[in-house]
Design a protein around this nucleic acid. Structure first.
Lengths: 237, 237
DNA sequence: ATCCATGATTGGTACGACCTCTTGCCCTGG
DNA sequence: CCAGGGCAAGAGGTCGTACCAATCATGGAT
């Protein structure tokens, strides 16, 4: 309120409600897991209709800030990266053409770094899990199974880096649908055996607790995918 | 747990509408910039009420997929990373404690890499812009000015890497409010001169078109911020 | 004391009405 | 004939109410 209208005074009631709730959370007035008043009460409190209030709640739900449970109430999420970055995946789902390459380049920066960190701190149990996913990839035919195992393989490794934010971001950079598209293409060009070698190389580096070898192996792997994508960008997206 | 109704059959009409629209976009049926039917028509088409349809539209708007213009209609955005990653910033706004450190660690991975790439391809004009932001930081007192110049400095450099997705992600990793909190603390601990040196070092590396020096300078800079944050995590968040 | 029916609470959906902004057509005046 | 203004239709924004569906607490029956 510094002038008649100046900047964004021209805003909707819903937008205002979103900001208000978000501010309360950012300021710590609303804590993780805490329950909010009823939709009806919230609407009355912020001075808008229940419909508009519901839109605000929906927006905050999509952002991963709130969670509405039918019949039970509205709650603040745990506010951890995993919650807040849930929508991040739509980028990889919807992006096309050069944007996909840009996203893969980001992953090519993050994942080698994450793999290097993981190599230094991964424990026996997690290493065993990685191994099992590697084995699974060798014994399945359907593309869906490949994709699931591949996804689990990489996610377990990145998770071993011990940085939830990093883990959530990398996860968002390559969704199941995106991976499926790539895998299908890779299979058709007979690149599966090469990929298996790359995965094994990553695993061996982890086994040896060698961060630099792990970084290099991951970089090579994602680099290969990036090259392939660059050459087949027209056919898949 | 999963037997009775299989998977997510237990879903709301709004959620379904969101998926349907998203699928149409992912499949290319709805193209960037294209106009959608009216809310009323969409609601009729997908078989739900206008309220629920509006909630779905609100959700997709928050995701950066759709854009509603009062009186004019609903449009698909350009679907570029900048659009899709707009909400990404709330993570840095809302996260507290160790999550902030985790996010900064991600930035410590991305920004040095981006700075290295930028060093190899930055042009004279952009270099001049970087220089101007550097000068601005030396001649302002209010924290807001510092923050604005600091933000512009880093954003210009990361932007010079030529990867819009990378640029949008790094931008989301440190919002204005987060930077303000850090700057305030840095000033109170008399760390501003040191920061200026770090910024200069980055600039000189860019000027020399030296990727590795740029990477190192950026890593040192963000590492310092991270160390400071780690030591003051209680006082600011 | 345990268990289950039952009703109050709360989110989910729907319909209908009205407001505000945008856009384009049409009419008027130069 | 062209430029400008004004009017009306279209479309998003907001509101109120009513009802459905899931949840949870209450209290009575066993």
């Amino acid at each position: 309120m510094d002038a008649p209208e100046r900047n964004g005074t021209r805003t909707t009631v819903t937008q205002r409600a979103i900001e208000q709730i978000k501010s309360k959370i950012a300021a710590g007035e609303l804590r993780p897991g805490q329950r909010l008043p009823t939709e009806r009460d919230l609407a009355a409190e912020l001075g808008l209709s229940r419909n508009s209030m519901r839109e605000a709640i929906r927006a905050l739900t999509v952002m991963g800030v709130l969670e509405a449970r039918h019949g039970a109430g509205i709650y603040v999420t745990r506010l951890e990266p995993k919650d807040l970055l849930e929508t991040f995946g739509v980028v990889a789902e919807i992006s096309r053409g050069s944007s996909l390459i840009d996203l893969l380049r980001v992953r090519r920066i993050l994942e080698p770094a994450a793999t290097a960190i993981a190599a230094a701190r991964i424990d026996e149990a997690t290493l065993e899990t990685v191994r099992s996913h590697l084995d699974r990839m060798a014994h399945c035919e359907r593309v869906e199974d490949f994709v699931a195992a591949d996804l689990a393989f990489h996610q377990t490794i990145v998770g071993a880096a011990g940085n939830p934010a990093l883990e959530a971001i990398v996860a968002g950079l390559s969704t199941r649908t995106f991976r499926a598209r790539v895998w299908r293409g890779q299979r058709d060009s007979g690149a599966i055996p090469r990929m298996r070698l790359e995965h094994e190389r990553i695993y061996r580096a982890l086994l040896a607790r060698d961060p630099e070898a792990a970084r290099a192996a991951a970089a090579v792997h994602i680099g290969e995918v990036e090259d392939w994508l660059r050459n087949n960008i027209d056919s898949i997206g």
